[in-house]
């Protein structure tokens, strides 16, 4: 009787090796379950993750240069100037547009609040010299595609976000000391705005 062994192991009594081993195995199994559940739940319940740290300091839906302490924890490279745009797609789809300068590194990366990137594009990879991305939820994509004119090619890259909220990071490199002001201008030239124009009116 397994259950009997379990209770016998718990209640002490006379020492029995099999009961002790069984008791230890139960601890290992339950501890492993707790361990796995904790690891999986940390990203969902973290309150000091990148997304929350940004929201404490920055406004929603506009690019702002990261303050030094956030630059240190998020970027960890003093030669990089970065701007962040926290978003919430409940307000509508998010449009990111910019025209990168040639020969200047610029990357646009889309993040979940936990700090993992789900999409990134650099100035070199950008098609036709322009970056034009519409970030949507699966539902928003459905209603936008229903409104699409089949004869007109889609101009933008439509990206489905894994969660409704997150943030976009734009990074550029200060190639030589003294070029920081130009770099800040470059990242702030990227626009981040709610765009409901493609959604059907209701």
């Amino acid at each position: 009787m397994r259950a009997g062994l379990f209770w016998k192991g718990l209640s002490g009594g006379r020492f029995s090796l099999s009961a002790t081993l069984f008791w230890a195995a139960c601890i290992v199994v339950l501890a492993a379950g707790v361990h796995i559940a904790t690891i999986l739940l940390i990203p969902r319940f973290a309150i000091r993750d990148a997304g929350h740290l940004l929201l404490e300091r920055l406004k929603m839906t506009q690019f702002q240069i990261l303050p030094p302490e956030l630059n240190a924890s998020l970027i960890d490279d003093p030669a990089i100037v970065a701007a962040a745009c926290p978003y919430n797609l409940k307000e509508g789809p998010l449009r990111i547009t910019t025209r990168p300068e040639p020969q200047e590194f610029l990357s646009v990366a889309f993040y979940q609040n936990g700090g993992t990137a789900f999409f990134a594009v650099t100035d070199r990879a950008a098609a036709k010299e322009n970056i034009n991305i519409l970030l949507v939820t699966p539902q928003q994509l459905q209603s936008i595609e229903a409104e699409d004119d089949p004869d007109e090619p889609v101009q933008e890259l439509r990206l489905i976000a894994p969660d409704a909220s997150g943030f976009v990071l734009v990074r550029t490199l200060v190639q030589r000391a003294g070029e920081r002001a130009e770099a800040e201008k470059r990242v702030l030239a990227v626009s981040c705005a709610v765009d409901t124009s493609e959604l059907p009116e209701n």
Binding site: P43, A109, T116, A117, A120, T122
Partner: peptide, 25 residues
């Protein structure tokens, strides 16, 4: 698509990892 441990470590550290095509640290 990072593994659950990497996701948990990132969320706890408050960092934002570079995307693969962006760069490496």
């Amino acid at each position: 698509d990072p593994d659950p441990y990497t996701r948990a470590r990132l969320a706890r550290s408050g960092g934002a990892a570079l995307a693969l095509s962006e760069g490496l640290r």
